[in-house]
Design a protein around this nucleic acid. Structure first.
Lengths: 338, 338
DNA sequence: TTGAAAGCGCTAACAC
DNA sequence: GTGTTAGCGCTTTCAA
């Protein structure tokens, strides 16, 4: 129980030099002789000195910590993004505080306040599904705190954003359904107040128009993408005189659930119903049939977001960009109609 | 760009009172009049004051932050545990720093040093698969830093541990295989240097012995549970004159992969081969057939671990416990032999 | 190149 | 109840 932590004063004392000299040595300042530098490092090692980041942060006015807000780390996309962000953060010698908004606006506000109290050097965020107004971000943004948004972004905030082309991805997915032989494709979409989901819906409808495939009534649904919404949607569709022969879901998890709901209706995938999702998860390989998807590059989006944040921290006047990451279509068995 | 942050001195100045009074008001100390308390709170609100946690931490000698080390947040079990830990941390008005060891001992050591520099108030950890020696933990433990380990624990560290009864769970799983009609059960196990995996292997073998089912040569494998190990194991087993008719895997992910590998051998699950895994993931419901599993209560293990950590932080002399959480057998289609 | 001293923003003795 | 003062451990002027 050698409870006490060694400080630079302890080193200074035992070497009969000034604490400031020790600090310079430890931070390999240019204004230090190689001899003392060596002496200090030696002694620090010997005494088991470890920097107190709290004290250092207080006097340096930067914490070397960045805050990350994600809706939910359980989702594969976000846990990939976290890994990408963590890697870059570490390369930059910084630390990461992760917090989950659990899709709650209130919680998001709390987290921002917490991060501010913590004096994080910058914030990376993917907005909660409830968030349509961003006044709570603007408060801190206006104080000069650097932000980067990714995936679930809001274009009203003047910061770098890392996104995918949702319209393009949805267009690809719908086109693939049509190419696979679907003539009555349907879309299970997210809330329309959310631009991201509007874009996915628009990509879907435009692809149909382009290929002269009619969009049937009730075949374009806007929901909150909950499990209940999935069941309700399927029920609605199965009641139609001619149900859909292909479904494009706006999220990965709803698509997965859809495979089971379809089975409960004795609908065969892909023969009766082709299925493709926006978002790709490991589980897509394990369903039977395996599930086609538009893959979002989570790790790359995360690492790119982090790189841009560090750029913004280093140079507050650096240009704010809109980075659009490529999407990839993964064709699996759920869209292999005979 | 009102860059400057308001401090208690600003409040003190504008109210012509002492900073310490402001501090007392803000922390609702008992030694403050209701009148000034109100006045201060009012002014703080007006000026947009936000506590500087860094400065507060430095003078209070506690940061209100706890560090969490997990091998990997992508695994469902761990992301559940994170949620449980986060919830309790929040209830206690504290913050959480999450770091992934990525199953690397080196990285684990780095993280510990980082957490120490950060002066976290306590650490919750689940050890990397490489970790068999815990000298790196003991250094900080001996300095009085409170620890709680969960799931991947090491019994050499004198701290509260939250685990499941691996032996019991494996015993249940193997017994279920036998009850389902398996006469040649096999086990794909983890590294034997790891007690957790030894216990799972032992539970398996003891269940066989108890039910007078012979353990055939090569039917008890100890591996690193990588995808390659899964394929190699299956290859080895399929080469036997009589391959296994039931497999119990020591992890959830290897079991999932096993379903696909089995399919590639034209082995029908569950008729030719029953399958059950230690660990349960959402994906288990989506495989065909759905996958039986021993479910580990991730969220509860996490929240319990956090509760014990806060107890240890509050009262350093509090008793170190070994908490054993119950396991549940989820019977699904992969073990329904006809 | 090194030292002395001030201060980051807050808390906690100790007075009054 | 409130003010005064002295730090927490480090960095950073400013001198020397």
């Amino acid at each position: 129980m050698s409870n006490k932590n060694i400080t630079i004063n302890d080193i200074a004392l035992s070497l009969s030099i000034a604490p400031s000299t020790v600090s310079r040595a430890l931070n390999s300042s240019p204004r230090i002789s190689e001899a003392t530098r060596h002496k200090v490092l030696q002694k620090a090692q010997e005494l088991g000195y470890e920097l107190n980041l709290i004290a250092s942060s207080l006097s340096k006015h930067r914490t070397g910590t960045i805050g990350l807000i994600v809706p939910n780390i359980n989702q594969f996309f976000f846990s990939q993004a976290v890994s990408g962000i963590e890697a870059v953060t570490r390369e930059n010698g910084c630390r990461l505080i992760i917090a989950q908004s659990n899709e709650s606006l209130e919680r998001e506000k709390e987290i921002l306040r917490m991060f501010n109290s913590y004096r994080v050097d910058g914030i990376i965020a993917s907005l909660s599904i409830e968030t349509s107004d961003i006044a709570h971000f603007e408060v801190f943004h206006n104080k000069g705190l650097p932000f980067v948004l990714f995936d679930r972004v809001h274009y009203g905030l003047d910061c770098t954003k890392v996104v995918v082309d949702n319209y393009e991805g949805a267009y690809k997915a719908a086109s693939h359904l049509i190419a696979s032989g679907c003539r009555r494709p349907a879309h299970l979409g997210g809330p329309r107040k959310n631009r991201l989901f509007r874009e996915r819906a628009d990509g879907f409808t435009d692809a149909l128009a382009k290929h002269a495939v009619p969009l049937l009534p009730n075949f374009l649904l806007s929901t909150d993408l909950t499990p209940t919404d999935v069941r309700d949607a399927m029920q609605l569709w199965m009641k139609q005189p001619e149900p859909p022969d292909g479904i494009f879901t706006a999220s990965a998890s709803t698509g997965l659930l859809m495979t089971r709901v379809a089975r409960s209706y004795q609908v065969r995938v892909p023969d009766d119903l082709a299925l493709i999702t926006f978002g790709n998860e490991p589980c897509h390989e394990y369903t039977v049939p395996s599930l086609s998807a538009i893959d979002m590059p989570g790790y790359e989006m995360g690492s790119t977001a982090a790189m841009h944040l560090f750029r913004a921290i280093t140079d507050p006047k650096s240009e704010k960009k809109l980075v659009i990451k490529p999407l990839q279509l993964y064709i699996r068995n759920s869209t292999h109609k005979k």
